[in-house]
């Protein structure tokens, strides 16, 4: 449900950084653990962009995998959801990546 607000922030940031040009493409990194659904974001994006300098822009979402370190044994664990277990059985995990919600780059014409 917060994806609409996030789509609007993405558009604000992109337009603000386009120096008066038209934004034709936005590359957005969304971590697997970021609590943001790429499909919902795409759904909101086109509507949120209407009437802005990013209207009609292409939204490319790059999903960043979730990686964590086990606090018990130091092993690394790949996470596709916000919890999981290390092969040693530990579930106290320090997240290293997967929470990204970042505009990587824009294309402006």
């Amino acid at each position: 449900m917060h994806e609409l607000g996030i789509a609007m922030r993405v558009i604000d940031l992109a337009v603000e950084s386009s120096a008066g040009g038209r934004v034709s493409r936005i590359v957005l990194e969304v971590g697997k653990l970021a609590a943001v659904l790429p499909d919902a974001l795409r759904f909101c994006f086109a509507t949120a962009a209407e009437g802005t300098a990013a209207e009609g822009a292409q939204l490319d979402i790059v999903e960043v995998p979730g990686m964590a370190r086990c606090r018990a044994c130091g092993g690394s664990v790949e996470l596709s959801r916000p919890f999981g277990r290390c092969s040693c059985g530990g579930s106290d995990l320090e997240w290293l990546s997967g929470e990204e919600l970042r505009i990587r780059e824009l294309e402006v014409v």
Binding site: S17, S24, I103, E105, L106, V108
Partner: peptide, 8 residues
């Protein structure tokens, strides 16, 4: 067309 590396 310009490419703007943003990282924001």
């Amino acid at each position: 067309s310009r490419r703007v590396l943003l990282e924001r």
